[in-house]
């Protein structure tokens, strides 16, 4: 049984693209508190620009984000003190909103290197190739994708499905899924949801599902739904909160946050 605790997380970015001075730091996360236990699925929903990806990236350790206060504890250990790869090896996984293309690095090589790093030993060659092919097939990616460069030339939907294949192969303790549902057609959405459900059905894995739309929640049953506005959680509830958001949108919360 594992726990991921986000405590009073404050995160800024260097507001480099403003025409003002480059010294301005812009605060994006303004005190996020959230605890996820293994076995739970948490959905975070919020309007564009509210800081959802910032939360996801900050947990993963993206260098662009500057944590000014707070902690992220994985079973009591503050992962903010770890490098990006150490966090992944500790059991965190981020499925990115915009998966990165890495030219010249084959999917096969990438997956094997990642698996080796995470397990601390190289996977057995024969079963590993089978596992990779099976994982790709489960997300309806042709095994030929293993020979292509990581995400290079993949369609938006293929990139997202590739993220889910990685989730299944690397099998972390906690998965943060940043809008893995956006840009998917209905078939791909089902494929991705099935993957997340398989992962979560193991029972001892936690999911933080970041999404903009309630659509995916028809396929993935969240235990908790959080409304995320202006850099912090504005409301927490169960499934019914998603239904309410579906009906009335974020307006109420955005207005309240603006006061």
């Amino acid at each position: 049984m594992a726990t991921l605790e986000i405590k009073n997380l404050h995160v800024s970015v260097a507001a480099s693209d403003d025409d003002g001075g480059s010294d301005g730091a812009k605060e994006i996360l303004r005190g996020v508190n959230l605890t996820i236990k293994s076995g739970e699925v948490h959905a975070i929903m919020g309007p564009n620009g509210s800081g959802k990806s910032t939360l996801a990236y900050s947990i993963a350790g993206h260098p662009k984000y500057d944590v000014t206060d707070g902690e992220v504890l994985l079973d009591g250990q503050n992962v903010l003190e770890l490098s990006v790869d150490e966090r992944a090896r500790a059991g965190l996984f981020l499925a990115m909103q915009y998966p990165v293309e890495v030219p010249g690095v084959s999917v096969a090589n990438f997956l094997r290197t990642a698996k080796t790093a995470i397990d601390g030993e190289a996977p057995k060659l024969r079963t590993w190739i089978k596992d990779v092919n099976a994982a790709l097939e489960r997300v309806t990616l042709d095994p030929a994708f293993a020979q292509r460069s990581v995400n290079e030339g993949f369609s938006g939907g293929e990139k997202k499905r590739h993220e889910i294949a990685q989730l299944e192969l690397l099998n972390p303790k906690f998965a943060v899924l940043d809008e893995t549902d956006s840009g998917l057609d209905i078939d791909a959405l089902k494929v991705v949801s099935d993957g997340v459900n398989r992962y979560s059905a193991q029972g001892d894995r936690g999911v933080l599902l970041i999404t903009h739309y309630t659509r995916i929640l028809r396929y993935i049953q969240p235990d908790f739904v959080h409304v995320f506005v202006a850099g912090r959680l504005a409301e927490t509830g169960g499934r019914e909160l998603a239904d309410e958001l579906e009906a009335s949108g974020y307006d109420k919360y955005v207005k309240a946050a603006a006061v």
């Binding site: 790869d85 992944a88 996984f93 990165v100 890495v102 010249g104 690095v105 290197t113």
Partner: peptide
């Protein structure tokens, strides 16, 4: 970042990227 976020240590990630490049 992408490679490291999958557990690959930084020096190995660099090596992969350079190999990929060439």
């Amino acid at each position: 970042f992408y490679l490291q976020s999958r557990g690959i240590p930084e020096d190995e990630a660099r090596r992969l990227v350079v190999h990929g490049f060439f």
